[in-house]
Each structure stands twice: as C-alpha cells, then as structure tokens.
Write a protein that binds this DNA or RNA. Structure first.
Lengths: 193, 193
DNA sequence: CCGCTATGGGACATTGATGTCCCAGAGTGG
DNA sequence: CCACTCTGGGACATCAATGTCCCATAGCGG
C-alpha cells in the first residue's frame, strides 16, 4: 500500500538520504565480497534489514540499482572531464583522474563481470563513447599508438585505473599518487625513458 | 551418461584424470560466475554431482584445491620462463607469455580477491619473488623505469596480462596476439613511438 | 499535543544450495 | 564368468539466505 515507490522526485530528503546510504554501503560491501548478505549490507548502511527491503524489494533490484547508480556517477565524472577538449594526453589525464575519484564504484563494478555483461544490453553508454572518441582523436593526432586497436587501449586504461585504485585501497600506493602512477605507465609503459 | 567417456576406468591414472577434469571445469565455471552451483561445475566437468562430492567433500575444499592447483600451474609456467636469464625485457616477454598460457586459471584467481587474501597467509610464493627479482634487475640495468615502485610495475604486469586474457576470451583480441599487445603496452604505454 | 512517516527488529514461510546415502549399471581385471 | 571399482542419479535432511508481515516506537511537522 502506498509504497513510496517512484524515483527521487519530490521525496522528503530523508528517503533519498537513506536510499543513498544503502546504495553506498552496498557498493562498498559488495566490492569486497560479492557473496555478502543483505544483512551485511544493511548493517554497513546502519539500517534494519526490513528498511533495506522497503527500498529494494529484491537483492537483484538492489544490485541493479547500485550498478545503475555507479554507472551514473562514473559517467558524470567522466563527462565533467570534457574529454573532447584540449590535448589528448591532457584529456586522458583528466579522464583517469575522474575515474580514480569514483574508485570505490569502479572496484564494485569490476569485481563482478556479470554486471558488465548486462551493460552490453543497453546502448553503448556515453562514458565509453567519450573515451573511445578521445582515443581515436589521440591516434589521429599521432599522440596515441595508432597500431593497436582502440579497444585494447580502452581496456588498458580501465585496467590500470582499476589496478591503481586497488593499490590505493591496500596501501601499496598513496591515494594521491594513483593518477600519476597510472599516467606515467600509460605514457611510458614500464620502461625507463 | 557415458558416451565417449573414459576408456580405462580401473587405471590409477583415471582418478587423477577425473580429478583434473573437475579442477579445470571448476576454474572455468567459477571464473565466469563465482556463484556457480556445484551442479554447474559437475555438469561442465561432465561428471555427476555425486562424483564431484567423492573427490571434494566441501565446496570450500574444492575451491581451495583449485586455488592451489592454479597457483601451482602459474608458478610452474613462470618458473619455466627462467626469468633470471637473458635480457630483462626478453625475460619479461617470456613471463607474460607464460602467464597468458595459463590464462584461464589467472582469470579464475583474479575474479575472486578473497583467494588473493588467503594467499597472503602463506609465504610469499616463488612466482612473485621471481617476478619481483626480474623487475628489480631490469630497473638496475636501466631497462625498466627506476622511478616507480617495483610493486606498481608488478601490478601493471598482472593487470595487463589479465586484461589481455579477458580480451581474448571475449574475442576482442586474437588469442595469439595477447602477448604481443601486452608487451607493446608494457614497452610503450599507449603512446606512439 | 496529535498524527504521520520511517524505522528497527522479531517471527515466520519459502527457496535454493549443499551434503549424505544408497542403489543399480557399466567397464575392467582376474 | 565373477568380483571389484567407479560412476550417475535419485531421495532425502539440513542450512543459510531471502522475502513477507506485523508491531511498537522515535522523530518530525503541523
């Protein structure tokens, strides 16, 4: 009855805040352990399991919403990076920096390839398109290696950013040095200059 | 049941072969979906669920054995690469090639960070030591970038190899081109030469 | 002060995976 | 041909997670 359903329009701030807390907690917990219980997530979010169920009927629904939210956050961050402006290499740096900034969600998404599969159903999202365009622009400008597939370069970028975020999470890299490490590797590989 | 099944059932080697089939199937299935059922694994291995239970009492036991087996395979492959011999860059190429060769197991291990955690309990394994030694040797020789932590370089190598294996799995890269793509990226990053 | 909403927590029913047993069939070696 | 081993599959018992209800209560706004 009167299920407080519809999206975040007109909802008292409380509901949006609780909802957000649950989404964040879910992303964090599920990134660490994909088999985490709903109870675990509720605990992390500091809400009752009942409350969690009030906001998300299914586990599936919850996960889907976290995925969607994460994609949205990442997309927003990358969009703000305005990859179509400026030198390709500088734009790439902004992209990496933006990705690192939402590292938690990145870790969450990458930790479950299943989500990645669902993503293929939807239209190619703006994030990938922007990144792809940047890569091709850089290749055309002779800045990025034109002899390898844009696909591969994109994979490399995501992989290194992911790696950097994980390294930061485990303390292997200082949080502020992630972008720099990733960029240096993207520019030079692992070779001395 | 049994169409073209095992031709020699009483032979000692048979048990090992069945066991191996289960381990391989488990690695493959679990790499794709961590929540896969024991029934799924049994099906992939083309054995009955009962048989699987005869070889591995627990799900936990099975997973542990797959981890151990995978580490062993990877370790063997890398050891055969004799990373302490020859030019660092050539040795690195051999390392990458060896890792790619056991890509399925790599995908399995990386898909569940939990396994990675257990690994920290044990002594630092030979694989990491060999790889680390190679990296430091290369840095000393001025071949690898001495200004970044060996830790980071190691992460990058694993990340790119993983990425390459995944790309191969999804058809984005031809299986035989993985080592080349990874090495090119390690040598030049994503920049034009 | 009153009512409304959101919440937390407990009490179920349900479901799906898991682990155990047992039995009959097939292939092998003696 | 007989005994033995390994196997697949079915029949449970168990268990943990999940999803549903319901009720008492705290907080917020009118």
């Amino acid at each position: 009855m009167s299920g407080p359903r519809s999206s975040s329009v007109g909802i008292p701030g409380t509901r949006a805040r609780t909802r957000n807390a649950i989404l964040n907690a879910a992303a964090k917990v599920l990134a660490r352990d994909r088999k985490a219980t709903l109870a675990d997530i509720a605990k992390e979010a500091e809400v009752g399991r009942s409350t969690l169920h009030r906001y998300f009927a299914d586990r599936e629904e919850l996960v889907n919403e976290v995925v969607e939210d994460s994609l949205h956050l990442i997309g927003q961050a990358v969009e703000d990076a305005a990859l179509d402006r400026g030198e390709p290499m500088e734009a790439l740096r902004r992209a990496v920096s933006a990705m690192v900034a939402v590292g938690d969600r990145l870790l969450f998404l990458f930790h479950d390839p299943t989500h990645f599969d669902k993503l293929e159903d939807t239209e190619p999202d703006a994030t990938d398109l922007a990144l792809r365009a940047l890569i091709e622009r850089g290749q055309a400008d002779g800045v990025f290696d034109p002899q390898v597939a844009p696909d591969w370069i994109e994979s490399v970028v995501w992989a290194l950013v992911y790696s950097g975020c994980e390294a930061a999470g485990s303390g292997a890299l200082p949080r502020h040095g992630v972008t720099e490490a990733v960029m240096r590797t993207l520019e030079n590989g692992v070779c001395a200059r």
